[in-house]
Amino acid sequence: MINYKFLEHTADIKFRAYGKTLNAVFENCALAFSDTLSRGKKIKSEKKKTISLEGKDNESLLYNFLEELIYLLDAEYFVVSKAKVKIKDNKLNGVIYGDRVDNYKDLDHIKAATYAEMYIKKRKDGKWEAQVVLDV
C-alpha cells in the first residue's frame, strides 16, 4: 500500500493518505505535508517536538494537526520530516521529527489546512483513508 498520493487541484495541493490504522493515516498525512514543503526532497530528522492536540472529530483533529505543522514552520522555522502519533478519543499525542528551515533552499510554503473536500474514513477493507486540500 502506498502512503499517500497527490491529486489534481487547480490552485491548491490535494492529496490522499492511507494507513492500516488511524494513527498511520495521520503519520502519512505528515509525510505528504513534508513532501509538499520540500518539493520532493528528503527532510532530515535532526530535531523533534512533542505535540498534544484535541479535536472534536477525526477531521477537526487532522485540521488541527496540519495547522500545528504550519505553525512550527512559520513561528519556529521547523520543517517536518515525519511524525509518530497516538490518537484516542479525539486526542492526539505524538512526536514531530524535522529540521531547521534554513538548512533547505527550495522549500514551498503552505498557507493553511482547509476543510474543503476533507474526509477521513475507514474503508470496507478495514484500512483508513484521508483526503486533504492545502491552501498554498
Partner: peptide, 29 residues
C-alpha cells in the same frame, strides 16, 4: 497578510464551526 492572516482565518473558521455547526453546510469550509 502572511502567517498572521492565514492563522486568523483558521482560528475563526474553527470558532464558527464550533458555534454554529457545519452539518447544514454544503461544504465544511
Amino acid at each position: 497578510s502572511r502567517g498572521l492572516g492565514h492563522q486568523t482565518a483558521s482560528d475563526y473558521i474553527k470558532a464558527m464551526e464550533n458555534a454554529y455547526g457545519f452539518s447544514h453546510l454544503p461544504d465544511r469550509e
